[in-house]
């Protein structure tokens, strides 16, 4: 009786450790399937299209409005200590180092992770995964590897586009609402960006893309039965992907920018 709360904590810890282990094994298996034939190119290119191209509108709009809002915030905050002039630099560094990758990662988690998890979970519930096996096709090779590889390659591109659109949003607000000179704004932005900023941004994009697609596939493949199982898999995949993206963001920021 006295030990039951401790036992409950122990059970939870064991459950979490077991799940981490399963995810790691799933990730390793996925990476192994990247390099071992057969390769399903059609599924890979379809995934590139659905994850990359069709995410452009949501990524663009999110980055644009965030860049604009960031410019307003920095201008207003900077005014407290007469530092309004730093808007171009802070918008650039903020978008490229942090907001661009994180916002794109979270948007991908919302749009792509949920869609992958729901699709694969439905395939599992309707025995399509079993059908793949009976048709001599490895489900991880056919479903997981192309999606995860496509996300890992295309999300950095989305992050790059998001960074540019976000900076453009800040530029528009800065020049039209806050009275910045167009040429000076662009010059300040360009002068302040370093290669490390861009490399860190794209690296974060690749890691976040990998996490987002992996979580969708993992929860889809391990979903429970029926509509409730599909719903639960979808919800858990988005939550796990979002938390892991934010945790990975901290780790990568430490790696790139800690002194």
């Amino acid at each position: 009786m006295l030990l039951s709360p401790i036992a409950a904590v122990g059970r939870s810890v064991l459950h979490i450790l077991a799940m981490i282990g399963q995810v790691v094994i799933f990730a390793v298996q996925t990476v192994v399937h990247f390099v071992r034939p057969p390769f399903y190119l059609r599924e890979f290119f379809q995934s590139l299209l659905s994850i990359g191209f069709f995410s452009l509108p949501v990524v663009g709009l999110t980055a644009f409005f965030t860049g604009g809002a960031l410019a307003l915030q920095i201008y207003s905050g900077g005014a407290r200590f007469n530092a309004e002039a730093v808007v171009p630099q802070i918008v650039a560094i903020g978008m490229i180092r942090e907001l661009g990758p994180v916002l794109v990662g979270l948007m991908i988690a919302a749009r792509v992770t949920s869609s992958i998890a729901a699709e694969i979970a439905t395939m599992k519930v309707t025995e399509q995964i079993d059908a793949l096996v009976t048709l001599s096709t490895h489900p991880m090779k056919y479903l997981t590897a192309p999606r995860v590889m496509a996300a890992t390659l295309v999300v950095p591109l989305l992050v790059g586009i998001g960074d540019i659109i976000g900076i453009y949003g800040g530029f528009l607000v800065g020049t039209s609402r806050l009275g910045f000179n167009t040429a000076a704004y662009l010059q300040n932005t360009a002068d302040f960006i370093q290669a490390t900023d861009i490399i860190s941004s794209l690296t974060k994009g690749a890691v976040f893309g990998f996490i987002a697609a992996l979580m969708g596939c993992y929860y889809g493949m391990n979903s429970g039965r029926g509509a409730q199982g599909v719903g639960r898999a979808t919800k858990l995949s988005v939550v796990a992907a979002a938390v892991m993206i934010l945790a990975a963001n901290y780790v990568l920021t430490e790696v790139f920018f800690s002194a």
């Binding site: 395939m123 309707t126 025995e127 399509q128 079993d130 059908a131």
Partner: peptide, 8 residues
């Protein structure tokens, strides 16, 4: 398969 299990 029982439900056909066709790939959508």
């Amino acid at each position: 398969f029982q439900g056909g299990a066709l790939f959508d």
